[in-house]
Design a protein around this nucleic acid. Structure first.
Lengths: 252, 252
DNA sequence: GCCGATTCTTGATCTGCATCATGGCCGCGG
DNA sequence: CCGCGGCCATGATGCAGATCAAGAATCGGC
């Protein structure tokens, strides 16, 4: 079996003079996705100085756990992460999937403790950004402050989209919408929008979309039969983008 | 018919020397709910100077509409507001209810245009807080900056709770959870947690909870029959707090 | 205080997805 | 190579809540 695409780091090679885990936003291919700041070289340096990068997370390793003290927000460099919260009866609710260039962990700010948990779906490299440093820095960098507000605001609007999806849409519409979302996020990183590997299991997809595994399977099968998708286990190919859009667009 | 409770302003009487619409956070009974800042007198004065208050909104009047330019976030002083977004097929999805002391409109920051709409559920007094001023002010007031981050973070965690509710809970559990949420928010304002008037219609409740009007009616009737609630149109009395909690707590 | 419009309730029926059950497939360790 | 465990697919059945329908209650305007 061939090497898994997602295991390849999507960051630029580190220059030889830098330490192995030294972060370098300036040369990071994701910087314009992750921190599209119109900030100058000096500001960027300041920002880099506070960012920490640790050993890559292995599949299924925990990034943070609900209830633990909040210290950092996290940027995905490579791999994929799922966010979830545990209900009082012990079940889990997946609240989001995070791909390279995306930021997670901001729900911990309000209580100084994480309101959700995050777990690597595959081997993933993660940047940790200590929030107190970020806060201090943003007080003197208006564009950074604004960027943080915008990041959080986007999280809110995305949650609202999911709320709408869960409350108004059928199984087919939910699945189609998720696939299109993943496709467009791939496109943003200059990856194929029509062919990709799902890093998460059917169980996670169902959980996220408020459906059972069986339903996810059936929807995939049906869409394959209808020539919309080609599904080979986790490998997805969108054969008929328009039909998929049509299947999703009933209500968003 | 007696005067409607919700029409009474919940703000402290304005002192005679202030202009009619002059805002005064310092004497506002809601200030510790709305802006629980450990900030000094001088800071508070600066904040007050940017806050605008206009003529109260009448029932069904629009506070802002999705797609329009974002300028301010809003604090409810009295009355109640619903937030919603319109789906592509013209239906609406209610994303939240906002009571006195609560802040809304933060989803507009990311795009500089409102991602949702807001409408008064009854006559409501609203404070508008221009966001660019707030941003500038918060750069020099760490506690204000932090408070804003926390406000937005709380919005995220609350949306995640709603996502879980919609994805995992039965009709009874959803309704029970909403009633308990309203009750506890009333308590925070020193109002009765066991007896209150719902400012929104059954349609809005159903829409918010991803259920139909008929289902809401049936759940209310059932809970009334079981001695958990006393329902008289929009007037709600919680007769058995514990049973209601039990009905809600299956999964949160 | 009357009347039309809207909102709410209740019943009967229908349906999309959950649940239950089973078997296949793939990856991995021995 | 085989056997085991996790993941996935698919069929049969059941049920919570949607939909359809018809009154009843409440509201708002005059």
């Amino acid at each position: 079996m061939s090497m898994r695409l997602q295991d390849v780091s999507e960051t630029a090679p580190l220059r030889s003079c830098t330490h192995e885990y030294k972060v370098n936003c300036e040369t990071c291919r994701l910087s314009k996705v992750c921190l599209p700041l119109a900030i100058n070289h000096q500001d960027l340096e300041q920002l880099e100085n506070i960012i920490q990068r640790s050993k890559p997370l292995q599949k299924n390793e925990l990034l943070y756990h609900e209830g633990t003290p909040f210290q950092s927000i996290y940027a995905v460099r490579s791999g994929a992460v799922k966010g979830y919260r545990t209900t009082s009866d012990g079940r889990e609710q997946v609240t989001g999937f995070y791909f390279p260039g995306e930021i997670l962990g901001m729900d911990g700010i309000s209580n100084n403790s994480h309101a959700s948990s995050a777990r690597a779906l595959e081997t993933s490299a993660i940047c940790a950004i200590p929030f107190d440093s970020l806060e201090r820095l943003s007080a003197s960098m208006p564009s950074l402050q604004r960027h943080l507000f915008q990041l959080m605001s986007r999280e809110i609007t995305e949650d609202q989209l999911l709320i709408t999806l869960l409350s108004k849409n059928s199984a087919d519409e939910r699945v189609a919408t998720l696939l299109l979302s993943i496709a467009s996020r791939n496109a943003r990183r200059n990856l194929s929008a029509s062919q990709f590997r799902l890093p998460m299991s059917r169980v996670d997809i169902g959980n996220y979309l408020g459906l059972t595994v069986e339903t996810i399977s059936r929807v995939f099968s049906r869409m394959q039969k209808n020539g919309i998708l080609c599904v080979d286990n986790k490998e997805i190919e969108i054969l008929d983008q328009e039909a998929l859009q049509l299947a999703a667009n009933i209500a968003n």
